[in-house]
Amino acid sequence: MDETSIQNTIDAYRLFRGLGLHYGFDSYAVVDLRSIGSEFRYKQAVVLHALAEVELDMVDAQANGGEDDPLIAGLASSMAPFMLAADEDGEATPLLSVLGFAALAAAPLATPDGQRYGLVMFSREALSPPDVTRLAALYLDALVVFQTYHDALLAPRAASEFSDRELAILRMTADGRTSVEIACELEVSEHTINANIAALLKRLQVTNRAQMTAKAIRTKLIG
């Protein structure tokens, strides 16, 4: 993609997809590494990807927790990019064996507050012999793209910053209106309203609409 501003998840998807295509990869996944352990599931840990949801279900059906997975183990223990190739036994990582890719390049990433992520780029063609120069260039570009993604969507916003649309949604929710009704009123999609409400729940540190309304009134965000 030419432009680099990220307004939402689709823009982030496009930015990482453009990066992968530039380096000749077929697909990608951004993995949140905070949930490594016996309960690790790709479906939950992958926060952005160019895979089908059903493909992640297929991987989880084959996977046995993150610690036994050389991809996840490598991302968790290293700060250098690396490559993995599918082996005949399909034991390299379930992401390769289940999804039918020949190889992957993986880049460990971290947010400024130390949260670990990993960018995984998939290739249908073998990557051997490993091209170290290309891998290094990919890693440097991945760092820039991830920083853009982090700043736009992952970094917490200031507690006092609420857009006009967010305040309108708070007011209409307090009036008992549904997402569809609010979407019709504001002439946006229901998905946009739900994404805004999900973000408001997180920012106000509450778990449902009733609590969100109560907190918005209590803190005088709405009258």
Binding site: Y13, D26, A50, H191, N208
Partner: peptide
């Protein structure tokens, strides 16, 4: 890949459960 992502984004991923 992109159209599949869009279909997933606007259907199965949909709204979080806590938006009931």
């Amino acid at each position: 890949r992109s159209i599949q992502f869009l279909l997933d984004e606007y259907s199965s991923r949909g709204a979080p459960k806590d938006l009931d």
